[in-house]
Design a protein around this nucleic acid. Structure first.
Lengths: 415, 415
DNA sequence: CAATAAATAAATCCAATTGAATTATTAATT
DNA sequence: AATTAATAATTCAATTGGATTTATTTATTG
């Protein structure tokens, strides 16, 4: 009954535990430094004494660590806080200019390259639209783009670039026709290893993650994450995708596709079973517009700048909300998420209407016994994917997403 | 857009990070000791050099740690392994008698008390059936039972008892009538804190966990866990319940009910929407038997000893398999589980037929785009809940479920 | 006997803690 | 207004304790 009946009949079980799990002083210091930076990031600004209280470390230890971090330029001291008994505390905050990171969002209709600083602000960006993406064009965009953006930095700033994080869809060759690519044009992507190809042309560490997962990560770090320890996330782009946050950490799963939620079966308008992505994707809206003779191109110029497309958009929002509501109930039946977060490559006013419609549709469903999550808007917006991508190099090097000492980095790194 | 626009407009975000997250030497040693024990447990037997390689620690460190653990009686040395060049290695394994632990499974129809050893073998057990559980009877059963079992141990053995782990259903008062309890009889449970009440009467640390989650934990540790890093688990008791394993660790969620899966909506025989627990629970079979004038009592005498109930059981297995198949597809759409594990309070031959029927039913569903998990039988069996309960004190004190240094224990401990 | 691997003893290193001292402030009292 | 007490932040110096490094011993194969 048990697999532990003794050493003799053990058929050498596979190694599941992290093989490099041991702890020592060097790793402890590295971990504590990341912990300090992460606490400062989470709270915006904290004094040494604050950090000592929150980390459980001694004041002396924190003092030493933070002095080092300040000397390295990662932390800046703010104005002393007076008004309370005792020596005034000196809040320390992240130096926004201490670290920069590139984020590349590559999509089915457009690509974005952003330069993000240490506190998550976008400092520069480039945007490009296309009918469909081709490897050599993407490569050219990212290499020339990085060159251009780096050209606007001085030597010192360039030395502070932590790397490039790519947010890209998996299996681009699927559904190529639905987005209007010529048959077979996307097949080239089957043999492309974007991470390796870009790493060969860029003098920085390169990271890669699914685009929706990246957006979810941005929401976790810069959006509603601090208020919700776990949530299911939907990002409506030309295709809908998603992500899952558990215990304040991205859960990407064995195959990296956890929370993909695109293929989730939902009941369509006429009672037929459809996949979520066949309803709640912007390409569907695009096709609806085209059918009615409306030019859909403005969808891709700038996500923050849609015009009101009237009836067809109204109809798309309704369908999308119905499908999202069902997906949320299904997810909530498996895991007791505290929130369902909805964002997308569209303006805030569209997002707001999608969310409200989803709340209304969810109320119509049978919720007996289900712990329903709060259905809320994402706080990051259309650039979430690029921001999430740009976060990858920073987190890999300076921050910790959880209080885990020796977690294996689940996104491979190439230098 | 970002929540990090500066310290001035931060409304003090809630503390999500573990407040006691700092690392120091004492904790490092405690962690490394647990890591060594966990590696030995996982592999059955390992030499010091093996542990050094697998943990990444230096040979000397491992040597010191394991000598201490051997001195404390937790590890035993096996026969030297010769046949290879160099000094023969000495495999070390857990001393089964180093630690004992009580496990109490309290259900709607029966209770079990087991004494488990350090390697997960049941050494003694008591069983009791009832029409429905009442607090004072459970308390009497556990206190007298522990007294009786401890009486069979000598003084030295008694001193090695790590604690008592309780596996019990949440919200016992729900569905009371369906299992034949008189209306209102289960209401008393609303005000009972079983953990506290038992802790007051038992001289050991007491832990509490949902019964299905406990069974899932037993499967993770003593069953298929070593072969599958993540799986969704179903335990068919008088009510069906479940659990979720992610990254080789139990995920119990914010409210402790993740993977409860009982209220999952599924389509019933006649196309109507039902909750999973209304179909795939043993109480349903019990009622079917009673309707046909068959005495259902043998269901509860011993889970390993059912008679073949013929047609009604056949019909129940079919219904159950249909519902389980739908639940598995729903779960797989959210998380890319590598397996769906089915076990229950019934004999292995029933489990085997349920699993085969579920595999057949799943094949009939639309699986387009879904990463389907392997549907397999649980390896632990009917006692999984009690074993999982008994594991709680052992894990809390001696082992680590993941390579997480300072995880907060998610089951409260009372001494 | 040479090569190899396991195991361990001794010395060294390093980061966290402890305890005491310093500094800067507010609060209370004269 | 001046003085004293209390409090809190920060840091210096000494200590602690566990991991690593280096070197040695032991046991085996070929």
């Amino acid at each position: 009954m048990s697999s532990l009946d003794g050493p003799e009949n053990m058929p050498a079980p596979p190694p599941i535990l992290n093989p490099a799990g041991g702890a020592n002083q060097v790793r402890v210091r590295a971990y504590n430094e990341r912990l300090v930076l992460s606490l400062v990031r989470l709270y915006g600004a904290l004094s040494k004494a604050d950090i000592a209280r929150r980390s459980g470390l001694s004041a002396q230890t924190v003092s030493v660590i933070m002095r080092v971090l300040e000397k390295e330029g990662l932390l800046l001291r703010g104005d002393p806080v007076r008004g309370r008994v005792g020596q005034p505390s000196i809040p320390m905050h992240l130096n926004p200019d201490a670290v920069y990171s590139f984020g590349l969002k590559m999509g089915r209709r457009s690509a974005d390259l952003v330069l993000m600083d240490f506190v998550g602000r976008i400092r520069m960006q480039l945007h490009r639209t296309y009918a469909y993406p081709l490897p050599h064009e993407i490569l050219a965009f990212v290499t020339s783009g990085i060159q251009e953006l780096e050209g606007r930095l001085d030597e010192k700033q360039r030395s502070r670039i932590a790397g490039l994080g790519i947010a890209a869809p998996f299996e681009l060759w699927n559904w190529a026709e639905e987005v209007g690519a010529p048959a077979g044009a996307m097949e080239v992507w089957r043999d492309v290893d974007l991470q390796t190809d870009i790493a060969a042309r860029v003098p920085h560490p390169v990271f890669l993650q699914n685009d929706a997962t990246s957006a979810c990560g941005a929401e976790l770090v810069f959006g509603v994450g601090p208020s919700y320890p776990d949530f299911v996330y939907f990002f409506i782009g030309s295709f809908i995708g998603g992500g899952i946050v558990l215990n304040s950490a991205i859960f990407s799963g064995r195959t990296g596709t956890a929370g993909a939620i695109g293929p989730l079966p939902v009941r369509g308008k006429n009672g037929e079973t459809k996949q979520l992505l066949e309803i709640a994707s912007i390409f569907v809206l695009e096709n609806m517009l085209r059918e009615r003779g409306i030019d859909p191109e403005p969808l891709w110029y700038s996500a923050d700048d849609w015009v009101d497309f009237g009836e067809p958009m109204e109809s798309w929002i309704q369908d999308t909300a119905k499908a999202l509501a069902q997906a949320i109930v299904a997810a909530a039946s498996i895991v007791d998420f505290s929130a369902a977060v909805i964002d997308g490559g569209f303006p805030a006013w569209v997002r707001s209407r999608v969310v409200q419609a989803t709340i209304d549709e969810a109320a119509k469903l049978d919720l007996q016994g289900v712990v329903m999550p709060e259905i809320i808007e994402g706080a990051v917006g259309a650039q979430a994917r690029a921001i999430g991508g740009a976060s990858l190099p920073i987190f890999a090097r300076y921050l910790t997403d959880q209080n885990v000492l020796f977690k294996e980095v689940d996104h491979a790194e190439r230098t």
